[in-house]
């Protein structure tokens, strides 16, 4: 009995030695498989899926900045060039994003006008601003004491971001559907620019390291 007790005690002691001391803020979440990991400095590898956690995004925002700026540049021609070109009985008529929204509004289809307006103007601009704010705020102590939940902000941009693709899909559907001898709808240059812009904002959001928020909170 005594021996057993001693053994147990020894085992307990050994276990005590094997224990790893971890601080709670050193725990990080793998962005790929969501496993909890211990932060070991610069080169982290997820213990479950093996993907590098901060290898190419080592506490830096350059990649995210690059994508964001590309997206903003692509957004300019997306608004200037026609999105949709209607060829009707020999006359060609192009409409930009804003023009299309205004036309829908004048025709009285308010909900659709609102959806398109939100999807292709409000959401991209909002996303640019939020990413801008997040990228600046992790570098400089901007809005540090204000009670803005940046994690929630980031999560929101990730969720609503893809919805700006609506306009591109609508153009694709219309262009595929209206293909008659007299009436034809063709996608315009803006469709390419807009699709690229959305694509790059999504990339920028994915490249943004959420851990930086935690660092700066």
């Amino acid at each position: 009995m005594d021996v057993e007790k001693k053994n147990l005690f020894k085992k307990e002691q050994e276990r005590e030695v094997c224990m790893i001391e971890v601080k709670e803020d050193e725990l990080i979440r793998c962005p790929v498989c969501e496993a909890v990991n211990i932060d070991k400095g610069k080169e982290n590898k997820c213990r479950r899926c093996g993907s590098a956690i901060y290898k190419h995004r080592t506490f830096q925002t350059e990649k995210s900045w690059a994508y964001l700026i590309t997206a903003i540049i692509a957004y300019i021609p997306a608004n200037l060039y026609p999105m949709l070109i209607t060829k009707q009985f020999g006359t060609t008529e192009g409409s930009t994003i804003l023009g299309g929204v205004l036309m829908l509004w004048e025709h009285g289809s308010y909900p659709i006008a609102a959806i398109i307006f939100f999807a292709s103007i409000v959401i991209p601009v909002l996303k640019f601003l939020v990413l801008f704010y997040l990228l600046i705020s992790v570098k400089y102590p901007l809005g540090k004491d204000r009670k803005v939940n940046k994690h929630k902000l980031y999560y929101l941009t990730e969720v609503i971001g893809p919805w700006s693709m609506i306009d591109v899909f609508v153009v694709a559907i219309l262009a595929a559907l209206i293909h008659l001898a007299n009436i034809e709808i063709v996608a315009g240059t803006a469709a390419t620019a807009f699709a690229l812009s959305v694509f790059f904002t999504l990339l920028a959001a994915h490249a943004f390291d959420t851990r930086l928020i935690k660092e700066n909170r």
Binding site: R15, I20, L27, R29, N37, I38, R47, H151, Y155
Partner: peptide
Amino acid sequence: MKLENEDALDDLVICHKCHTLH
């Protein structure tokens, strides 16, 4: 916080919205 080994981390969850440890 003390952990036995790295596998014990599987008992922890971090909220994907607000990053709170559970």
